[in-house]
């Protein structure tokens, strides 16, 4: 049984933003929000249902930037032709989020707003250097996903702000892989490697293991030292493992991800 709340149903971003407050929060798929409310962790007096705002849905390519509406479901992203063609790693990540029901219900924006530390999506987006667009009555600001995710369940987003879209700059000639180690309901560690050959940049992002994704940056995958990346992470100790174990499997999965990256590009 959920606690009592009221419902608001705006149809434009402006209306939606006008509804938001500390007590009145955005609601889309509910896969995070409703669980938190049922657990008594969160008790807003009203939910602002943003599913009826067309501007918040869909995937567009504009000036080399792929824009994903915040209310778009994981399933739609996973199956989208643009995403599969331009950012196949992201499509794979989205195909592996939760289960088929969560993918059909849950939205990409909700996933980021909750700053769920075991989010596959956040790790992948940080690897792509994606940002989000946050709108409030006072205007719109762009924030890198790596900066949006401030801590476990703590995003840099004010209560009166609405996450409108995710903006992913399309890399040039690149390879990317995401590999996760998952033995329970959520991943123990997720490793994204993004090798932008045309820009001579390589990013390794390790998520799920700590409160926020950790980023290593260089020019080429050959420079990556998995054990050093494992030292960068600050593991959260939980039922999936101790800090020592999580550091260890971080190194193992960075190594495996690099191997997969080699395999993904027949050179």
């Amino acid at each position: 049984m959920l606690p009592r709340f009221d419902l608001l149903r705006p149809t434009t971003v402006a209306e939606a933003v006008g509804c938001l407050s500390e007590e009145s929060v955005p609601y889309c798929g509910g896969t995070e929000l409703l669980l938190a409310m049922r657990a008594g962790l969160y008790r807003p007096s009203a939910l602002v249902d943003i599913k009826r705002v067309p501007e918040l849905r869909g995937i567009r390519l504009r000036d080399g930037v792929l824009s994903i509406g915040a209310a778009t479901s994981h399933r739609v992203v996973a199956l989208d032709a643009l995403v599969r063609g331009q950012l196949p790693m992201l499509a794979t990540v989205e195909q592996g989020v939760g289960n088929a029901r969560v993918r059909a219900q849950g939205s990409v924006g909700g996933n980021l707003c909750f700053a769920e530390p075991k989010s596959d999506l956040a790790t992948a987006l940080v690897a792509y250097e994606a940002s989000v667009s946050l709108t409030s009555a006072g205007g719109t600001r762009e924030v890198l996903v790596s900066e949006l995710i401030q801590g476990a369940y703590f995003a840099d987003k004010e209560p009166d702000e609405l996450l409108v879209s995710i903006e992913i700059p399309l890399p040039g000639d690149h390879d990317a892989v995401y590999l996760k180690y998952q033995t329970m309901e959520r991943p123990t560690v997720g490793v994204a490697v993004m090798n932008d050959r045309s820009g001579r940049r390589c990013r390794v992002v390790v998520g799920a293991v700590g409160e926020v994704p950790v980023v290593w940056e260089g020019t080429d995958p050959s420079e990556v030292v998995p054990d050093e990346i494992a030292e960068l992470v600050d593991p959260v100790v939980d039922l999936t493992g101790s800090a020592r174990y999580k550091r260890h499997v971080t190194a193992v999965y960075v190594r495996r991800a690099l191997r997969a990256l080699e395999g993904s590009h027949p050179s």
Binding site: T183, T240, G241, S242, Y245, H248, V249
Partner: peptide, 8 residues
């Protein structure tokens, strides 16, 4: 025999 226990 969780993964960590087996690894240890």
């Amino acid at each position: 025999l969780t993964p960590e226990r087996v690894w240890r």
